[in-house]
Design a protein around this nucleic acid. Sequence first.
RNA 1: GGGCAAUUAGCUCAGCUGGUUAGAGCGCUACCCUCACAUGGUAGAGGUCACUGGUUCGAGUCCAGUAUUGCCCACCA
Length: 893
Amino acid sequence: MPNELSKTYSAKDVEERWYPLWEKKGYFKPLKRGKKGKPYVIVIPPPNVTGILHMGHALNNAIQDILIRWQRMKGIETLWVPGTDHAGIATQNVVEKKLAQQKRDRHQLGREAFVKEVWQWREEYGSTIVRQLRKLGSSCDWSRERFTMDEGLSRAVREVFVKLYEDGLIYQGNYIINWCPRCHTALSDEEAEHQELEGALYYIRYPIKGSKEFVVVATTRPETMLGDTGVAINPSDQRYAHIQGKTVILPLMQREIPVIEDEYVSKEFGTGIVKVTPAHDSNDFEMGRRHNLPEICVMDESGVINENGGQYRGMDRFAARKKIIEDLDKQGLFIEQKKHIHAVGHCYRCNTIVEPYYSKQWFVKMKPLAKKAIAVAEKEKVKFFPERWTKVYLNWMNNIRDWCISRQIWWGHQIPVWYCDDCKKLTVTRDDPTECQHCKSKNIRQDQDVLDTWFSSWLWPFSTLGWPEKTEDLKKFYPTSTLVTAPEILFFWVARMIMAGLYCMKDIPFEDVYLHGTVRDETGRKMSKSLGNIIDPLEIIEEIGADALRFVVISLVSQGQDVYLSKQRFEGGRNFTNKIWNAARFAFMNLEGFKEGSAKLKISANELSLVNQWILQELSKVSRDVENALLKYRFNDACHALQRFIWGDFCDWYLELQKPVLYGNENEEQRKDTQKVLFFVLDAMLRLLHPIMPFITEEIWQQLKNYSTEEMPETIMNANWPDIKFNFQESTFIPAMKEIITEVRDKRARFNIPSKEALHVVIKPLDAGCVTQARMLTELFGSYVKKLAHVGVFEDRLGFKKEKGWLLLNVPSTLHDFEVYVDVGEFIDVDKEKEKLAKELDKMEGFLEAAKKKLSNKSFVERAPREIIEKEEGKQRDLIIKIENLKTAIAEL
RNA sequence: GGGCAAUUAGCUCAGCUGGUUAGAGCGCUACCCUCACAUGGUAGAGGUCACUGGUUCGAGUCCAGUAUUGCCCACCA
């Protein structure tokens, strides 16, 4: 019956079968079983509704799923809250693009119809990413799925806005903000991404009034001169003492503007004279305020020169820049331009160069919120993994600036502020007002702006649990346990969530923050659609399955280092799933007739063969290793430990060694024991692997259940995390046997001895006292060595005398009292062998030299710890023996 | 300008609190379609751990500096 498993693993059928079943049965919901105590909770970093699954998501969600599945199997109540983000600007852009294709635009539609259009778009496409997350195997509790604009979360946004306003932490004001001339909206400082660009520093003459002299200013943005209302020098700059208090004529505009003195001006940069444009530069703005300079805005919301720009009106800012320089040049006022590399802000959504723009916006005062957020990181109440991010976080928090939260777009949470046409006062309330709070006038209008997307995301860890209602979920699941995300949104999101949590919930939102690297292509570039270097995770899943994808991606994650991917890398994952599959097939073939309640092995050391003891010992080790790795978020370590055990220990050695036992009928009892152990190890192995590779483990495990007479859980998802502790007496026999086998195989390979040629191997006890032990070796391991190394005779012989064609094996460093010989007869190639042995001898003598030097070093012997010295002495003894052996072997050739 | 990472086999990377004969996967070479798997097996080659100093009995591992690369932050126009 179980042999229906096909020869190669087909991920697609398997994966499509299990996920719907898990979900339907409600296994992703918080389930109480086993351990009491604090539940383990993760909130998903909500992907944009516009999103489609990319490798970054795959990595991010694979990690979360591993943590959740692992904790769930440990009997802890787990919750993984999924959801999506309305992604204000990004989504609006997408829908606008769609409209444009239909030759429509949002202004034609009007606000209400446009918003409706976006909602419709969301209905249609918004579940794409959510469906794709399922394909990955993500075990989120979908019954709790949230959206940053759903009713509850909108309630939360409203609540926190009003609360902040009432606490005096939200204010409205005219300031220079980052403006995207393409999206037509203000951006926060974080949303303006600085990129180093090669620009130019333009040197321009401004005539001094009533004089033939000039002052020379240097600027990177000549077009802003149209709005200049002053020229500034440093008060202590002797070079310019003579122009203090003078007036200059602004070229092109012929405006008279004063020379002011301000400490801000650096004497070293440019000419030491700065043109002051208060409406288009944040430093100039502050300077302007200090000196009461007018603020003249010369651009409109699209970055086009407006009516204040005189003859340049209607020109795009960059066209104007060019024209202005030309015109200045004609007038002899342009001196030169010098190459200048500087960081220029770009819109994080559309990559347009942002314009510092003077406008009325809403802001959140951040300093008061940051205070506690700093403390919790310093006291490690919130811990960052890798730790180095703590510093980055603290640095940002300590230099935090106010957060511009108003956006001039339509898709988002409209700002809950109403202006009264009559008394001009503001109404800010939790429920939509019908009249002015102050004068009861009905002539009120809501603020047209919406809030920054992140103003809803920063509430995510508690808004998704029901806040501001006092729900059961909130009580039970807040604070959450681990946040898994990428460092790119450390400031945007993580830092702000910590502030919001402390402000609204009076408690941290999560205990651990695990920051993983960015997914890049093999040349180190970020994967992006525009670069055309993406590897589509869905395509990979289609081809080789989510398990293989997860395994590969996760094995490359090392402590926050970036992940470099190429398509070729996924082959390894496919091969590994296939290996597991075939190991299982083999196991099932050999469990024929086995049916026992052996899930719990109750066998003491002396009842099992050494090989069985050995694999159980290795299993204990790997279960410990995986546990430790996951505890420390060292996912690649967990992967490697499992791969090494499954492929190396289990498949390459254990299964191969047990073939004689399983095939042969000589020892029925040993065969039964081995079946028991095989069942046990396979079961444990699958459970250890399940968090990383959920589908294949479930598939095999369901088959395995057929062999158990004991009740096993319905799904491996809810099986227990194996806690395996075998402590058999360490045996030197297994490693020695492995060495003998390897060495014999080596001789065979190097001398081209055909596999049909059965070899003769002799163990020679070095003294009579070891005879019994040698006999044990040959008896215990005879069948193994014979099968795995194609040995015909494997015997022990006291006083064995080597003849022509016999070679001393260089191996069993763990067996001091024996020598092992193999007869390669006619196949011997003396020169080849000599060469190899000489090389080996050379190496060993080098090591011995080093060991001797160390041990004869007085300070080493005096200062090094005892066990290190003993180890070194042991090493020296081994080396001496080895060298002796090598020398004899060479001499006897 | 400030900060952070990285630099170990041809490639991609492990190497966590200093003590091994420095590891893995891929690739490479040779042999093997052996009754789980050729998406496989066996064996093998391949490294003066970027450089220079220092601390130490002992450094791939700690410290300082140099170089190269990448990332983040920053209002000097």
